[in-house]
Design a protein around this nucleic acid. Sequence first.
DNA 1: CTAGACCTTCCAGCGCACTGGAAGGTCAAG
DNA 2: CTTGACCTTCCAGTGCGCTGGAAGGTCTAG
Lengths: 142, 142
Amino acid sequence: MRIGTLAVTSGLSTKTIRFYEQSGLLPAPPRTSGGYRDYPEQAVARLAFVRNAQSAGLTLAEISSVLALRDGGQAPCRHVTALISERLTDIERRLAEMTKTRDALRGLARRGAATDPATCTENDICTILAQTEGLPRVARDQ
Amino acid sequence: MRIGTLAVTSGLSTKTIRFYEQSGLLPAPPRTSGGYRDYPEQAVARLAFVRNAQSAGLTLAEISSVLALRDGGQAPCRHVTALISERLTDIERRLAEMTKTRDALRGLARRGAATDPATCTENDICTILAQTEGLPRVARDQ
DNA sequence: CTAGACCTTCCAGCGCACTGGAAGGTCAAG
DNA sequence: CTTGACCTTCCAGTGCGCTGGAAGGTCTAG
């Protein structure tokens, strides 16, 4: 199977697949006489596993470490459960922070709706946003 | 006030303050005869505002846009409420995603605790992580 | 006069997971 | 034989919010 086919069946881009190979997530496949990568069926499962592990919040580096154990013939169970509990702790902390931020934002939204622009003076820049003390700096993405 | 003093009173690093100036968040202050930045008291409030707005989940670019309005003499209320409601929508979506991921991770943790390493075969790589279908790719940070 | 605390600019890098683009090679259909 | 889809490598850039470091200038205390 060539890289384009693997890309379509796995739902990843060819760029990403080559990147995963370079990152040690996907073993370098044999090449055709023309130099094209020629993947075994297995590769589809391997990529699916990477995606699953990513959905569980593992970084590519962590996934790499799991795969390295497996490829070395060891069952990575203990390692995996440790990673999972780390992720769990992490996500619970972040959920708590974000919930706080959400509540604060709701307060700000309410305040904004009730604000008369005329009461806004220059020196506090924006009364709506003026006090938001002590909140965690919020995570951003996509 | 020199940059080091401003750094201490605002709780930011001098690097960050210069970076904010370069990003248009903090106006370039006058200089002393020796070429040192000489900040007015106001700068403290301005930086506090930036931090507050950041806690509300606004990006530096968004904060810039609020400050630009204010500096242009307009009350940025309408703009600010729009940004807040965007952030709110965003954070609610992310909370929902992360809650799903957390639940999935809890399931995985339970599964992991109940897994006999011997049942793990090579071709599924790791039975604990094997099915995690349909979860959002989770956001990561600090 | 010197040490050293503080300041200046400029350029570069981090982390993470990709993504874009250039320059060129391969292969099957028409 | 040409077209064009697909592949190769390599290098560089994205976003975001900083952070690090080098090379040098300024100011104050002793």
